[in-house]
Nucleic acid binder design. Structure first.
Lengths: 212, 212
DNA sequence: TCCATATTGTACCAAAGGGTATTTTTAAGT
DNA sequence: ACTTAAAAATACCCTTTGGTACAATATGGA
C-alpha cells in the first residue's frame, strides 16, 4: 500500500444506493445525477471506484443477487417441511421483498429485463440480466425433479413447466407489487398458483385407470 | 375547410408506429428521434399533429387499448362455452399477442407501468396508465361475480381474488414473453393458474361438512 | 518535513435530449 | 394565375446526458 487520501464512502453502501436507483428507474431511466446523488458521492469518485455506468450497473445487479435474492433460497430446502409449504414460504419471502416499503416496489429485474428488449442496455449488462433470469427457473426445476416429495407427487413429470408456472407467478406479483397491490392479496395469488401446480400435476401424472 | 397542404402521413399509421416504439422502449427510453424515425415524419409534424411527447404517448396508449386489448374481450362472453374455456381463450388470446413476432414482445403496459414508480412519467400519462391497470381486474371480477356458472361453482365468493390471480398470471406471462419464452410453454402456465382458481374456490366454498 | 499517491471538488466537454422559429412546399378557393 | 393557409424541412434553442481534465486536499512512508 503506497499511501493516498482515504475514501470517504463505503463501497457497499454506495452500491446499495445505486441498486435502489436502478431498481426504481431502470438502467436507461437512471441518470448519473440520480445515481451519484443517492450514492452521496460525485461523478469522478464514482467513475474511479466503479468504472462507468454499465459496470456500476453490473456491480449493483450482483449486489442485488447477493443481498436480495439468495436470502430466500433457504426456505426451499428447510428440513421436515412439506414441499408445498416450502414453496409457499419461498415465494412469500420474495413477495414480501417485492412489497417492502424499505425499497422500491417490485423486482429489480422486471424493469431492467424489460429494457433489454428495447436495445438500450449495453451488451455485458444485458448478458448478465439474461443469465440471472434463467437461474430461479432452473433452480425450481431441479427441485421439482429431485425432491423426494415432488417425485412421489409426480411433480417431476413436468418439472420445467411447474418451475415456469411458479416463476411466472412471481414475475406477475412483482408487477402487481409495483402497482401497490398489498402482500395479503398477492398471497392469495400465490396460493392459487400453488394449488394449480399441485393439482395439475396430480391429474397429469395419475396413470389413467386402465379401462378394461 | 380552408385549403392548405395535404398531410403526407396517416395519423393512425403514425400512432401505431409510435405505439410500437413505446412498447419496445418505454416512455423514458423512447426518444423523439426513435419515435419520429419510426413514424416516418419529422419533429415539427409530430408536434403539430400530436402536441408533445406526453400527449403522443397518451394517444398511442389509447390506440393500444382500442387495437390490442379490446379484441380479446369477446372470448369472455361467448355463448354456450364453459367458463373455464372462455377464460382460457381470453388469456391465450392475450398470450398470443404477447408472444407475437409482429410486435414487440410482452405487454405495452408492463414496462410503462413499471416506469410510473420511477417518477419520470408526466402526471397525465401516469394517471392514464394507472386507470388502465384497473380495468381488466374489475372486468374479470365482475365476470366472476355475475356469471351464472361462476356463481354455481362458488367462484363469486372471492371474485376479486380470482380476478387478481388471473391478471397477475397475465402480467407474468408478459414478462416471460419478453424474455422470449414461447407461447406453448406459457399455455401450460395459464392452464395451471386456471386449475388453481377453479380448485381453490371449490375448496374455499364447499361448506365444511358439519362434523357432528 | 517533505514527497508520492490516492481521493475529492469544480469546471468543463461533446452528444443527445425535448421542443421551436423560420423558411419552403404544396394544395384548395377565387 | 394568385392568394391563403396548412404541412414539411431545415436549422436552431436550451437543458441534460455520460464522461473527463485539472486543481485542491488529505494521507502514509521515508
Amino acid at each position: 500500500m503506497v499511501s493516498g487520501r482515504k475514501r470517504k464512502f463505503n463501497e457497499q453502501t454506495a452500491l446499495q444506493a445505486a441498486m435502489e436507483v436502478f431498481w426504481a428507474k431502470g438502467f436507461v431511466g437512471a441518470s448519473l445525477t440520480d445515481l451519484t446523488k443517492s450514492m452521496n458521492i460525485n461523478k469522478p469518485s464514482m467513475y474511479s471506484a466503479f468504472g462507468n455506468k454499465e459496470s456500476l450497473f453490473i456491480k449493483a445487479t450482483q449486489h442485488y443477487i447477493e443481498n436480495n435474492m439468495k436470502a430466500h433460497l433457504g426456505a426451499l430446502y428447510a428440513a421436515n417441511i412439506p414441499l408445498k409449504t416450502r414453496l409457499k414460504n419461498y415465494m412469500m419471502s420474495i413477495v414480501g421483498m417485492q412489497c417492502s416499503t424499505e425499497q422500491p416496489k417490485g423486482c429489480y429485474l422486471v424493469l431492467c429485463q424489460s429494457e433489454v428488449a428495447g436495445g438500450d442496455i449495453p451488451a455485458e449488462a444485458a448478458k448478465l440480466l439474461i443469465k440471472i433470469e434463467a437461474a430461479p427457473k432452473t433452480l425450481l426445476a431441479e427441485l421439482f425433479s429431485t425432491d423426494k416429495e415432488a417425485i412421489s407427487l409426480g411433480l417431476n413429470e413436468n418439472s420445467t413447466g411447474n418451475a415456469l408456472s411458479l416463476y411466472t407467478a412471481l414475475k406477475g406479483t412483482a408487477s402487481m407489487a409495483r402497482s401497490k397491490v398489498p402482500p395479503t392479496e398477492l398471497e392469495f395469488v400465490i396460493d392459487t398458483m400453488l394449488t394449480g401446480v399441485f393439482n395439475t400435476s396430480k391429474n397429469h401424472t395419475a396413470p389413467s385407470p386402465k379401462s378394461p
